[in-house]
Design a binder for these strands. Sequence first.
DNA 1: TATGAATGAGGTTTCATTCAT
DNA 2: GATGAATGAAACCTCATTCAT
Lengths: 219, 219, 219, 219
Amino acid sequence: MGLSARDGGKAFGRGEASRLASYTSPMKMDDSARRQELLASAARLFRDVGYPRATVRDIAKAVGMQSGSIFYYFKTKEDILLEVMETAMRAFVLAGQRALEQAKTPREKLRLLFAGHLEALHGTRDETAVVLSEWRNLAPKSRRRMVKLRDQVDSMWDEALHEAVAAGMVQGDVRLLRLAMLGSLNWSLQWYSPKGGLSIQDLADRFVDFYVDVGPAKR
Amino acid sequence: MGLSARDGGKAFGRGEASRLASYTSPMKMDDSARRQELLASAARLFRDVGYPRATVRDIAKAVGMQSGSIFYYFKTKEDILLEVMETAMRAFVLAGQRALEQAKTPREKLRLLFAGHLEALHGTRDETAVVLSEWRNLAPKSRRRMVKLRDQVDSMWDEALHEAVAAGMVQGDVRLLRLAMLGSLNWSLQWYSPKGGLSIQDLADRFVDFYVDVGPAKR
Amino acid sequence: MGLSARDGGKAFGRGEASRLASYTSPMKMDDSARRQELLASAARLFRDVGYPRATVRDIAKAVGMQSGSIFYYFKTKEDILLEVMETAMRAFVLAGQRALEQAKTPREKLRLLFAGHLEALHGTRDETAVVLSEWRNLAPKSRRRMVKLRDQVDSMWDEALHEAVAAGMVQGDVRLLRLAMLGSLNWSLQWYSPKGGLSIQDLADRFVDFYVDVGPAKR
Amino acid sequence: MGLSARDGGKAFGRGEASRLASYTSPMKMDDSARRQELLASAARLFRDVGYPRATVRDIAKAVGMQSGSIFYYFKTKEDILLEVMETAMRAFVLAGQRALEQAKTPREKLRLLFAGHLEALHGTRDETAVVLSEWRNLAPKSRRRMVKLRDQVDSMWDEALHEAVAAGMVQGDVRLLRLAMLGSLNWSLQWYSPKGGLSIQDLADRFVDFYVDVGPAKR
DNA sequence: TATGAATGAGGTTTCATTCAT
DNA sequence: GATGAATGAAACCTCATTCAT
């Protein structure tokens, strides 16, 4: 019959253009105030009702936008989630790095790791809560990106725990120790409220004490 | 057990189901094989992809039904979730009761509580995993029902922990101890696999050791 | 309809069920009256305004349905297009087969091929018009299915044209002849109307005469 | 040329553009380089994916513009289509005029008409392909403008065909002859590629031969 | 001249739920 | 007990278009 098709589906352009990040100040939009607002709005909603039930409309409405406008800033709802979670994970990485830098003794390292993690979790940003609960809603590709960041956090903990074991402060498998500790900390998301009269620092101390034998000096 | 909820639950409930077997025509459909199949199917799906993304169609399909037929057994998708979670919570209650009954010493009590909780979590049933992650998707009314069951679990833990503290095995606030411990245990859902070469019993032992000073007897 | 099948999608389940086309009468729905109505409605709209501008809502409304209901019958808008086009292509195949069977002489074959093609094109069904104009909107995979059907049509024409050339009725490259002829016929879609006083049969005769030297007998 | 329209054109026009260069500030923007670039970009896109699927954004991107900027040059997406199609139609008119001027004999006229039409269709410009496929997407008012141009083309063909009939080279109704011929030629869009080893000139010759009886001496 | 930001209408698709049979 | 058909609300996303700058 003679119908062919010289169109080759989706991809159009031959010349295409891929034009010049140099025109506009590079990434001008990537940290525009509006974009940040949207991310914050999304983080809060994701935290409060979960990613699947947080609608694009709601996210937009919270910053006074129409739902369609969101897609000027993000390609996909899932992209927003990924970005929120990356932000959160980087906050954890940062908290870890700071803890390791500032601490002098193995015990101090643990204490600061505990406190830093809790602060990230219960601070002003909502992202960190999201990172714990929405993992499942990431596409495999996004998940892989997150895993790398998570591994960074883990290895900082392992480093500190190795020292603690060497110092005789704790005993047992480092990995299991980390898993137990982070479980305790992360679970605080389910119950901790600063209004309860227990400060983050106090909580960190109490939790550390559960794991670390109180040394002779303190006994 | 320590699940709270800072979640601002939207609008939910419609009619609110008549829940208990005893209300409706007794023993007619409430534990029919089909119904149990559906609950199991739902539990698995809820665990694997989460409640919001588990569709009624999928739940039905897994037992060879049409989606419409589900509503012969359940008034609402949320009713299914509630029932799954109640089942799970009762499993935790049961595990706790058994532990307290069988154990002789305070240390044994803790060990059995740890092991029982982990077994419930990683056993053959999928419900227990659901109870930890889908709290948010319960309507307020359902949530209240769950809270009561959770409180039962909590009080068993507290009982055991009081004894442990009295025995000098652990020190610190009982509530915080429980929260830390359950956090460690629940978090295992994120990483534990029986294929890893570590048995549930072993894991329980290791975790207990993290919290309980190895006593003189064992030293 | 049973489940089984070509669903490809995400796929959760482990056990899955893959249940028995034998329960329900196989393909019961595949030619339900409603489904056929939808296909007819789609064909008409595709023909009238083109696939991209024919909305699912419009297709549904034309048979008194809501847009969502369409997806009970078809997985995708594109699936509808594919099915419409396959129907059309099969009509062309059928027309060709009939022509070749009924005709005695080479000249008769051409005449019947012309007439059959034109009848398919301008008959009561709208599908055949669609097949000529919406090729571009098929996904590559669907396109491949169509190509096979198209090739069947082409080879019937080539068969007839070979004979015609052998008989000295026409001369030239068979493929180019086919392409020229089908071009003439297909283009009639742009201008032919039965109300114009020219019957399909007449038109076929005139067109054949353009291509075939009037034989000695007729001279 | 023979494009009609049984298409029931829905609602379209809004304000209806002021089209011709002479209306607006003369020679200011109407043939600016940018404008021409945009038209070329649009033509290519319209040809490759069709008018409805060619987005304003894509058209703009191909020339390194933002989508909003297009509306400085054109009032409406449909205006772009109209202009592209007018350009194309004028190319066909021009091809026809040239053919009639240069040819000496009736046969030569046909040959040049065929070749000119094919050249326009498969030359470097993408517009001519668009004119054949996007008729349906023109608003009624625009369509009327196009019809006039098309009629010019048609009458040139009719003129040549009258002579050909008078010369005994072809026989039959002039209008039907034109429709058959243009069908053959236009359909080449579906299958012809210059890479196939057949030049445009050759193709024109072959096609003419299909319609014109080769006289004994080639007389 | 052109951009960057946003709109708002509308597109396809999903899904819990209903109900006659 | 269960199905098949359908609903209707709402989800994500697209896109021509506007407009202040």
